[in-house]
Design a protein around this nucleic acid. Structure first.
Length: 802
DNA sequence: AGCACGCCGACT
DNA sequence: GTCGGCGTGCTC
């Protein structure tokens, strides 16, 4: 007897364990660990993953696997183990871990239907219409016309049956090909027997006489300028036949990749690459922190390291932050390694992602360049993992499983005995501290490749501007430089990390601020549709002309978004051509690339944008970078806000003067004396690091302490508070005395979607029992979670404390 | 997560 | 006496 241990697709505490199933005889040979199967589960059918096979079960009345969903396992042994590890370390369900590792196309789709068993006349009257000319109907559709109880009644009587279907989302793209079923001689005969009027059919047969091979229908039709009706006729006559051919969607098909070759390395690069190559050669796991200023040629180091890996017949994963996955970035890898590269990012459709993933699974590519989830690429001979811009937040997933790609990469690096490169111009304090301690190997690139100096940064004190009567969002210095660039036909990048129009709307008479009715957050004004929008729950309402509180007409828009800047800019400098890039203008597929191309082609003078323009932009004519308000992030309730500000400002400054023309940078700020603004203007990472480390130490924050955040949410404030109180108490009791437990406190965003949020923050150096304690807390509140609408979220090593 | 089972209040 | 509310517990 073979028993399959199956993890079912039911994300709940009680089902977070393997269930045993018998394997039907005819599948005995084919079912393997890592395959998806459809299994009966209670009254329904669900998708499940075979975790392992065993020869017996302690459970007596086993049910059978209904059918397999894969011919080949979608998870190999390593990934199955990795899922186990993930679920332990991030406290997530196994099934969530499996799903995080696979492309979304492999997630099951469920359909519930009701099926007519008896004759139509037997069921009650309302059903007659439903089952008119069909015997099955979707559950949701049925409920539109008949009541739940009437369905139940008919089911009880045996007239109806509820059936559950599991479908795969994965659809391989198929193309219709047409071929001839006859040989040359037969074709000629067919041609003669053709009706005189059948001119189109004649040309088709003549075509197949000339080229007797299978051809894609689409091509055939366009070549012969005919329609599918003609082909259909010939198929019916038995002359032609069609066949579905599976193919890949290739999002990069239409594009030419200019082949690039290894560049001659600078002395610094050579020095840096040696230990990496040694580690690849010796198959040693080692984590390198590649600390190199912007423009110092980190990418070339990556490329030549990958090249070495490929020559050994091994594979490489390159992670890039989502917003940096620009065509420019992809080009660099495709240009060097051609079709050995698969690309995985959120811009692809579900089908495209699936195809790229299959290329990896079928070993048709050796390199994958992708965002966070690409860390789970099913390679079996990994030779290197590279994480570019390792300090970026996007590597931490905020939903379950709340994993950090860096941790996963190190885990995989250990199993494959391969090196990891973490690259950054502004390493996270965690990584730099580990490098200082010798846990990671520090490699440094201090010089820019072209030996250009970093662009000089000028800080403008906006309070001063205000005092001298300039109330606009542009300082006089910035306007002056902008005008200068316009004359010189050079380009400017203006950076602002806020989309929309104004950040909030306030009544000047009574101070009323428009807030979301479901969340504790102010609404953001969006000019293009004249709506107030909540960025957390999506709530929208029309803009108010008078204050809802005191009926005053003195409603004012505060803060500045990209839209408003664009408006102002066109007012002040009507001759300047501006391209705005933010979530609103780049949401359409390909819009991002299109806007960048326009800018590159010199069709605009100013590129105005949010976060997304801080990275990867490398255009020779950019000589001015302006940061409109350098301190917007500084005052967020987050212990990393200084670090983030430093990183962002350094990053943005790096956009200027990367080529022959020298660049300049302007930071506008209300707090010019703040060390992260001052030190980023001097590009002094080392000093920033030591300043910030002192602060982290005195407040017991990472990297000195680990942190874990527990967030409790409930519709009732009192429930949220009391549960958090209890949790905090238990945590204090059960953890070590030198562990700091903060809370209960309201979350920085105290309410989202009508749920009150309270939290408890744990800071610890070493806490061997942490996972056990946290698990027992989740167990304890199991009842409230499943029936009472209580939610408890646990984030081990969170990036956002919100 | 779903769904059945089961135990109490408001109706024919 | 029955219909239907939702608390409890199970799914191999």
């Amino acid at each position: 007897m073979t028993v399959a241990k199956v993890i079912v697709d039911v994300p709940a505490k009680q089902t977070d364990r393997p269930f045993d199933y018998l394997i039907p005889e005819h599948l005995e040979e084919m079912i393997q660990p890592g395959m998806r199967v459809i299994v009966p589960f209670g009254p329904r059918k669900v998708q499940g993953f075979v975790e392992r096979l065993e020869s017996e079960s302690s459970f007596s009345s086993l049910r059978k696997i209904s059918e397999p969903m894969d011919l080949v396992p979608v998870l190999n042994k390593e990934l199955l183990d990795l899922a186990e590890w993930l679920s332990i370390h991030t406290l997530c369900y196994k099934i969530s871990a499996f799903q995080a590792m696979l492309p979304p196309a492999l997630k099951a789709k469920y359909q519930r239907k009701i099926k007519l068993l008896a004759a139509k006349e037997v069921v009650s009257e309302p059903f007659h219409f439903l089952f008119h000319e069909r015997s099955e109907i979707l559950w949701e559709d049925a409920l539109q016309t008949v009541s739940l109880s009437s369905i139940q009644k008919e089911v009880k009587n045996g007239n109806l049956e509820v059936i559950y279907e599991v479908q795969s989302r994965a659809n391989k793209k198929k193309v219709k090909h047409i071929y001839s079923r006859l040989d040359e001689h037969e074709l000629k005969t067919a041609l003669e027997s053709l009706n005189k009027q059948a001119n189109k059919q004649r040309t088709v047969i003549e075509y197949f006489l000339k080229h007797n091979q299978s051809i894609e229908q689409r091509l055939l039709l366009s070549e012969l300028n005919t329609s599918s009706a003609v082909i259909k006729g010939l198929i019916e006559k038995g002359i032609l036949a069609e066949q579905e051919v599976e193919m890949y969607r290739d999002p990069y098909k239409e594009r030419e990749f200019e082949k690039t070759f290894p560049l001659k390395l600078t002395d610094e690069q050579t020095k840096v690459i040696q230990p990496i190559h040694a580690s690849i050669h010796n198959k040693e796991h080692e984590v390198f922190l590649l600390y190199g200023v912007t423009g110092s040629g980190k990418t070339e180091v990556y490329l030549q390291s990958i090249d070495k890996v490929l020559k050994k017949g091994e594979e490489a994963i390159v992670l890039v932050p989502e917003i940096a996955l620009t065509p420019q970035m992809v080009n660099r890898f495709k240009g060097r390694f051609g079709d050995k590269v698969a690309v995985l990012h959120s811009g692809l459709s579900v089908g495209e992602k699936y195809d790229e993933w299959r290329k990896i699974q079928r070993k048709e590519v050796q390199v994958v360049v992708g965002a966070r989830s690409a860390i789970f690429a099913p390679f079996e001979n990994l030779g290197i993992i590279i994480i570019d811009e390792e300090h970026e937040m996007t590597y931490k997933q905020e939903e379950n499983p709340k994993y950090h790609a860096k941790d996963v990469s190190i885990k995989r690096g250990m199993t494959h005995n391969c090196p990891i490169i973490l690259g950054s111009a502004t390493p996270s304090l965690e990584s730099f501290a580990r490098a200082q301690k010798g846990v990671y190997t520090l490699l440094t690139l201090q010089k820019r490749m072209n030996n250009n100096p970093l662009p000089p940064v000028e800080i403008v004190d906006m309070r001063e501007e205000l005092r001298e009567g300039n109330r606009s969002m542009f300082s006089r210095l910035l306007l002056e430089k902008l005008a200068d660039r316009l004359v010189k036909k050079e380009q400017t990048v203006l950076f602002l990390n806020k989309r929309g129009h104004s950040s909030f709307v306030m009544c000047r008479d009574c101070g009323y601020v428009m807030k979301c009715p479901h969340c504790d957050i102010s609404l953001t004004y969006h000019q293009y549709n004249n709506l107030m929008k909540c960025h957390y729950c999506g709530y929208e309402e029309p803009t108010a002309k008078i204050c809802p509180e005191c009926s005053s007409e003195h409603i004012r828009y505060f803060g500045t978004g990209t839209q408003k800047v664009e408006e102002e800019l066109t007012k002040i400098m009507p001759e300047a051509r501006v391209i705005r890039m933010d979530v609103d203008t780049t949401s359409r597929k390909g819009a991002h690339e299109k806007l960048l191309n326009q800018f590159q082609d010199g069709k605009a003078d100013i590129l105005l944008g949010t976060q997304m323009i801080a990275k990867g932009l490398d255009f020779p004519r950019i000589t001015l970078v302006g940061v409109l308000s350098a301190d917007t992030m500084l005052h967020l309730p987050d212990f990393r806000s200084s670090e983030k500000t430093f990183q962002l400002l350094t990053q943005v400054s790096g956009r200027a003067g990367r080529h022959e023309l020298e660049g300049e940078v302007i930071f506008q700020t209300y707090t010019p004396e703040h060390y992260s603004i001052e030190l980023s203007s001097q590009q002094d990472y080392d000093l920033f690091y030591s300043r910030e480390m002192m602060i982290r130490k005195s407040h017991s924050y990472p990297p000195y302490y680990y942190i874990t955040l527990i967030t409790v949410s409930h519709e009732q404030l009192t429930k949220a508070v009391s549960v958090t109180e209890q949790i905090t108490k238990v945590v204090r009791q059960k953890l070590l005395p030198n562990t700091v437990v903060l809370g209960p406190v309201a979350s920085p965003i105290s309410r989202i979607k009508n749920r009150y949020r309270y939290q408890c923050l744990i800071k610890y150096k070493q806490e061997p029992n942490l996972k056990t304690v946290l698990k027992s807390i989740l167990d304890h509140y199991q009842g409230d979670i499943s029936s009472n609408g209580l939610q408890i979220s646990i984030d081990v090593n969170p990036f956002l404390l919100m």
